[in-house]
């Protein structure tokens, strides 16, 4: 009772933001928005003026060229293959990085900071940018796509693994250390069983994300169905474009459903 009464008093005594200060903050926020709108040429008028051209584009997209579908099976499968290997390599890279980036496992703060820095760098560079780099390095095709997904996903997964590992019950780790177990044994018996469900769920989610990402990677020449997409648009074969978009939609939906079901089973 006493504490609730006193907290009420504190709230009353707390100085409120002055109306003037509020107005100033509001003005600042609005200012930033207007400034950004100017910077991005945001303009409703242009959108309305462009409306006929947009409609023209949509009309040319229809009807889809369904006879193309059989030819799309191979690039779709390639996209799935890119996602599979990209995710798998990412998992292999990010397990050691994730362990070292977990404060409760890292052997030394310097190692922890280094691992965190590497993961941040990998995350900061998007799949598309990695795609451009690897296309430049190893040429066009699905292989640079695999590498692009592997590196960027390793950054994401490593960070999530580290968070999962840091949430492990410290008592269990202490108990295993108290038995005289080696650090590796502590990881295998204490950490792995505790993070396994989350680990599987994260990987499935990443695989599903990578299928979506792999459809885009073709735009920079890194293989898969995205390559067909950009080609059809460059050749103004818009009915082909529609078929490709439909194919992507179906593939992604199926992968999402499958991954969601599997994740539900794990948790």
């Amino acid at each position: 009772m006493g504490s609730s009464a006193s907290s009420g008093e504190i709230k009353k005594a707390e100085p409120r933001l002055l109306t003037f200060q509020r107005a100033l903050i509001l003005a600042f926020v609005f200012g930033v928005y207007f400034w950004s709108a100017h910077g991005t040429n945001l303009s409703a008028g242009e959108l309305i003026r462009g409306y006929p051209y947009m409609m023209d584009f949509f009309q040319r997209l229809w009807p889809p060229n369904l006879s193309l579908i059989p030819q799309l099976v191979r690039p779709t499968v390639e996209t799935l293959q890119i996602a599979l290997w990209g995710t798998t390599l990412a998992i292999i890279i990010s397990i050691p990085l994730g362990l070292l980036a977990a404060a409760n496992i890292a052997p030394h703060p310097a190692v922890y900071n280094a691992a965190r820095a590497i993961l941040n760098a990998l995350r900061a560079i998007s799949e598309i940018v990695f795609g451009l780099i690897f296309v430049a390095a190893v040429g066009l095709g699905p292989f640079p796509g695999v590498m692009a997904l592997a590196f960027h996903s390793a950054g994401m997964l490593g960070k999530f693994y580290a968070e999962a590992i840091e949430n492990v019950d410290p008592g269990t780790i202490e108990a295993l250390e108290a038995t005289g177990a080696h650090k590796l044994q502590v990881i295998v018996y204490g950490v792995v069983p505790q993070v396994l469900p989350e680990f599987i769920s994260l990987n499935l989610y990443r695989w599903e994300h990578n299928i979506r990402a792999a459809t885009v990677l073709g735009l920079v020449g890194a293989g898969g169905i995205g390559f067909e997409l950009i080609t059809s648009m460059r050749l103004f074969k818009y009915p082909d474009t529609t078929s490709i978009l439909l194919m992507i939609l179906i593939t992604v939906t199926l992968a999402d459903t499958l991954s969601a079901r599997l994740r539900k089973k794990v948790i």
Partner: peptide, 12 residues
């Protein structure tokens, strides 16, 4: 050593 919260690996 044994502990107040037992500290077993619960999933094993």
């Amino acid at each position: 050593m044994i502990f107040q919260q037992f500290n077993l690996v619960r999933r094993l």
